[in-house]
Design a binder for these strands. Sequence first.
DNA 1: TACCAGGTAAAAA
DNA 2: TTTTTACATGGT
Length: 292
Amino acid sequence: MVLVHPQGPYDLGLSLKAASAFSPGPHTSEAVLRTPAKVGRTPAIIEVRQVQASPPVLEASSPQRIDPKALKKKAEWITLADLDLSPFYALSEGHPQLGPVTRLLHGLKHLRPASIFEMAVIAITEQQISLAAAYRVRERLVKRFGQEIDGLWIFPDPENLARAAPSELASCGLSSRKAEYVSDLARNVHDGRLDLDSIKAMSDEEARAFITAIRGFGRWSADYILIRGLGRVDAVPADDLGVRTVLGRALGGGPRMTAAEVEDALAPLRPYRGLATFYLLAYSRLTKAGPG
DNA sequence: TACCAGGTAAAAA
DNA sequence: TTTTTACATGGT
C-alpha cells in the first residue's frame, strides 16, 4: 500500500463517474478505481481509493506483489496526479458557461490509459465510428490478445499485437485498414523502431508532428492522444464530431460548430483548452438521463 | 431499415 | 492541389 498526493483539488469518485459516462468499461459503481495493468513485467490489479478529500490523499494497493515505487508511479500516471486544477479553475471562473460547470465538477480529472501504446490503439479504434462501437471492438481485441487477471483484462502488449496477423486483428471488428495501422504500430513499437514514451518529453507541437508521422494517425488522433493519453491540457481535436456538437450546444446555444468556430470559442481558455473541452463534454454526458 | 457515429489514407478529379 | 471514396460496428 502506498499513498499518493495529487496536486491541487481532486475527486476520484467524480472522476470515475465521468469515466463510466464516456464508456461502458469495467469501472466500478463504487468510488474505487480498479484497473488491470502491467507494473514492470508483472500483471497486476491496481486499486486506488481516496482516503482524504482535501487536500486529497489517495491510497494505491494491489493484491499482487509489486514494487511499491512502481505501483505509486502507475497510480500517479493513471490519475493525473501531477496536474493541478487550480489555475484552470481560476481561469474559467468568470466564463459564463464553463464557470458553473467547473464549480459543479470540482475535482474532476480524466483517467489516463496505462500506456501511450494503449491510448494509440484506442485512438485508432475510435476513428470514425461511435465510442460504443469502438468499445466493443476493443473488448474483443483485449479478450483475444490480452491477459486475464482476477476477472479483468490487461490490454495487450505491443508484442502480443505484433504477433497477430492483420486478418486476426480485423476479425475483432477493425476494418482491414485499421488492422494494418494497429499491426504496423505494434510491430514498430515492439521492434524498438518507435518509442512512444519519448513523446512525454516533447512539446505539444513536437508531439503532434511525431504522432502524425505514424501511418494511421492524423491530426485528430494526435490531439486526442495528447489530451487523453498524456494529459496535455491545452490540446483539443477541434474537428472532432463530439466536440463540435457539444460545444455548439454549450457555448453557441445552437447546432454543431465548425472546427474554426471551436478554435474561436476556446481561444480565451488557453492554455487549458483541452481541459475546458473535457469538462463541457463530461457535463453533457453526466447530465444526460442514464439507463434507469 | 437506414443513417450516423469523437477519421484516415489513397484514389480520382 | 483539392475532392471523393471505402471502411467496420452499434445505437436509434
